[in-house]
């Protein structure tokens, strides 16, 4: 198979998988929140409400796209594209098995951190170009938040990289298989917690949803968006949730592998194992979202700069020392 046809197939598979995963997580979110709030949730939209996310997506397709008069049109129109490009781009390095991966980059973790920060541009330009004060404040909040939490996200991963001695995601998983334990047990527990907190902030989910902050900024940087562009923001939020949880499972929870399963069958059970782990982590984040209020902007920054970053630096130090000693 030529490189270009292989690339085409891989891109098509990713483009088909990403929205499906997002819809699955949407369903998990609506049903999970309904369960937490003692209500039935969606019941009537086909198959006992199970195709409800599809209906929601279809609804946005047929809605009118309203573009306010004073917006900076090209910037406003392209802002959602930055966000979705950043989150879908991350699919490149998620290994479903040693071979089922778009590209096993040698600098995989580096790629992850570089690409994920692109969405900041999208959010900031969306807030700026909307010609709305609430959007602007949402965009600025988002920029401050995403920059602040990029650091603990990077630094918490550094510990894993030191321990695995590689930046390739497949390499990290293989190291965990070789080790016998996933890294979350073997030394990187604190890093895992920091990673999840930072990832929640990166995703702008409650308790870190000030850029959206419905009760404060109506919808933050998304206020003026409607129709398909709003759908892109909405769906990239859930794709991002999937990607972040998938990466967390890969880096900390052993990725596509479960101990005791035969490694020669990994191409069959690998995708299922990873998706299972991802959805479990996502459910944890969903439970957190529906039980906590949101932080204040200054409390969020305090948490990032005064707690998470020193803690992750400490984690790197301890990991490095342990690496040298053992």
């Amino acid at each position: 198979m030529s490189f270009s046809s292989e690339l085409l197939i891989k891109v098509l598979v990713v483009l088909a998988t990403a929205p499906v995963m997002a819809l699955g997580l949407t369903l998990l979110e609506v049903k999970g929140s309904a369960w937490m709030q003692r209500r039935p949730g969606p019941l009537h939209v086909g198959l006992r409400g199970f195709i409800f996310p599809l209906a929601t997506a279809a609804k946005y397709f047929q809605k009118e796209t309203i573009i306010p008069k004073d917006v900076d049109e090209p910037v406003f129109k392209w802002a959602p594209a930055w966000v979705i490009a950043a989150v879908v781009g991350l699919f490149t390095i998620i290994p479903l098995s040693p071979t089922l991966i778009v590209r096993d980059l040698e600098l995989g973790v580096f790629f992850l951190l570089a690409i994920s920060s692109i969405s900041t541009i999208g959010v900031l330009t969306a807030g700026w170009s909307s010609a709305n004060k609430f959007s602007l404040m949402g965009g600025l909040r988002a920029a401050g938040q995403l920059i602040a939490y990029e650091l603990p996200l990077i630094l918490s991963v550094v510990g894993v990289v030191i321990q695995a001695e590689t930046m390739s995601t497949v390499g990290i998983v293989e190291k965990q298989i070789e080790f016998g334990f996933p890294f979350v047990i073997a030394g990187q527990g604190i890093a895992f917690i920091i990673f999840m907190i930072a990832a929640t902030a990166e995703m702008m989910r409650t308790p870190f949803d000030m850029p959206i902050g419905e009760s404060e900024l109506t919808m933050g940087f998304m206020t003026e968006y409607s129709g398909i562009r709003f759908l892109i923001f909405y769906i990239s939020e859930y794709i991002n949730l999937f990607v972040m949880c998938a990466i967390a499972s890969t880096l900390f929870l052993g990725g596509y592998h479960i101990p005791l399963l035969p490694t020669e069958w990994v191409n069959f059970y690998g995708p299922l194992v990873l998706i299972g782990k991802t959805f479990t982590l996502a459910f944890l984040l969903i439970a957190i979202r529906w039980s906590f209020p949101r932080f204040r902007e200054d409390q969020l920054q305090t948490l990032a700069w005064k707690v998470l970053i020193p803690l992750s630096l400490l984690n790197i130090m301890v990991t490095a020392i342990m690496k040298v000693v053992f």
Binding site: Q37, R38, R39, G213, S215, R289, W290, S291, F292, P293
Partner: peptide, 16 residues
């Protein structure tokens, strides 16, 4: 009040 601060669950319990 919690809804305004960002907690979405209490209002459902309270209304019930």
């Amino acid at each position: 009040f919690p809804l305004e601060i960002g907690a979405l669950t209490p209002i459902f319990l309270a209304m019930e």
